[in-house]
Amino acid sequence: MSFASFGEFLNMGGHALYVWLSYGAAAGVMLYNWAAARRQQRRALQDVLDRMRREAGGRADGRAGRGDEER
């Protein structure tokens, strides 16, 4: 251990602002990247399913063919 007490550890020899700002920003960027990748995977699969639902709905309404052509 390089510090005598927890208070000294937090104080970082007077450089607390710089050290903790860096580590805080890093944690934020990591969390953002993790969450973004996760959200994109879920959304991509959800979009595929939504499209399948629309197409199935189109067929059930007797508008087969037309509903399938969208986009």
């Binding site: 973004a36 990748a37 996760r38 994109q40 995977q41 991509a44 699969l45 979009d47 595929v48 399948m52």
Partner: peptide, 23 residues
């Protein structure tokens, strides 16, 4: 890998294997 998997699903959205996968 995570972002690539999302990209694959988006771009291959019309293929049978992705539809089966999403379901």
């Amino acid at each position: 890998v995570g972002r690539l998997r999302a990209e694959i699903v988006r771009r291959e959205a019309r293929t049978a294997w992705v539809r089966a996968l999403a379901a």
